[in-house]
């Protein structure tokens, strides 16, 4: 195992796949000469040149569509968004074109494209830079959605995403790029899309958490351990296809579940997981499933309001207390 920053794991994945396949290229705002807004693409321009590491203007709709057309015509683009908050401008390409062109032409078009970049909030950035979009994209048929929490997952899953012959949304976080973690040194390290992971084994309650919220859940679990509550954490890693059997298996053991999600509550990931659990594991539940999400409110700027807005370990502990009837 090697200890890498999240950004280094991302870079290794891109670098290895570009070295392996000439058709892979990366484009996005500041990816080339600037070396990446968050340094995820540092050094790639020097190594691969201007043909395969391409700076774009701030035209998310335009360059995403060029990526879609390039994918249709035989290339394997990686389209970087400086944040998925900006990808909203490219939603027509992702939702109306990338996910649908193959189907509506009766399978004549293949779409091997990765849209990647940071997702959700990253501190006091205000209302328009703070939204988690993974559930929204997972809503649409034809897209695979990955939102990883640790460098090892990021490397293995990004390599899978780049090799996938379908459009894949791959999400990261500005606040995780500097985070270090052990990353497999296995040659050509691949994690299959659609496989979750038990990141902490426990017997009292299952917490489902992905992306940045995994770390919040981990913090909560450490505190709960001191109180004698043994938490199991499942990180689905891939939002869609969802590894539901892994979650159900855990609930059959713990009989209680809290979903922690950095999106707003309505029709989000937490809502979906809650529904699936009642359908698949109803008889195993000793308490209603609880969720910890953002409130149904835009991101505020003021520090105290922002802290109140973002789910934290305290919120998770409260939810665990509810499902374990400890309050």
């Amino acid at each position: 195992m090697a200890e890498l920053q999240f950004r280094e794991a991302i870079r290794e994945a891109i670098d290895e796949e570009m070295a392996r396949e000439e058709k892979v290229f990366i484009m996005g705002e500041e990816v080339a000469e600037y070396n990446g807004a968050y340094k995820a693409t540092e050094g790639l321009l020097d190594k691969y040149g201007y043909k395969r590491v391409i700076d774009t203007p701030i035209s998310e709709l335009g360059f995403s569509g060029i990526g879609v057309g390039a994918a249709m015509n035989g290339l394997r683009p990686i389209v970087e968004f400086m944040t998925f908050n900006f990808a909203v401008l490219a939603a027509d390409q992702i939702i109306n074109h990338a996910s649908k062109a193959g189907y509506m032409t009766g399978g004549q078009i293949s779409m091997p494209i990765v849209f990647r970049g940071p997702n959700a909030s990253a501190g006091q950035l205000g209302a328009t830079h703070s939204v988690a979009y993974d559930s929204m994209y997972a809503h649409f048929p034809g897209l695979k959605v990955i939102y990883t929490s640790e460098p090892d997952d990021a490397k293995g899953l990004l390599k899978s995403a780049i090799r996938d012959d379908n459009p894949v949304i791959f999400m990261e976080s500005e606040q995780m790029y500097g985070m270090k973690g052990e990353v497999s040194e296995e040659e050509d390290y691949i994690i299959p899309i659609g496989k979750g992971k038990v990141k902490r084994e426990g017997s009292d309650v299952t917490i489902v958490a992905h992306g940045k919220m995994y770390h919040v859940a981990k913090q909560a679990a450490a505190q709960l351990e001191k109180d004698g509550v043994d938490v199991e954490i499942i990180d689905p890693r891939t939002v869609k296809p969802l590894d539901l059997p892994l979650i159900v298996e855990s609930i059959k053991k713990t009989n209680r579940c809290v979903v922690v999600d950095e999106a707003h509550p309505f029709a989000g990931f937490a809502a979906e997981i809650g529904f699936l659990i009642q359908r698949e594991a109803f008889d195993y539940l000793d308490a209603p499933v609880q969720r910890v999400t953002l409130p149904d409110v835009n991101a505020p700027f003021a520090k105290n309001l922002f802290d109140a807005w973002l789910p934290d370990a305290k919120n998770v502990i409260e939810a665990v207390n509810q499902v374990t009837y400890r309050n």
Partner: peptide, 10 residues
């Protein structure tokens, strides 16, 4: 329109 640009890009 951008997709047509992408075909040319490839």
């Amino acid at each position: 329109i951008p997709i047509g640009g992408g075909l040319a890009f490839a």
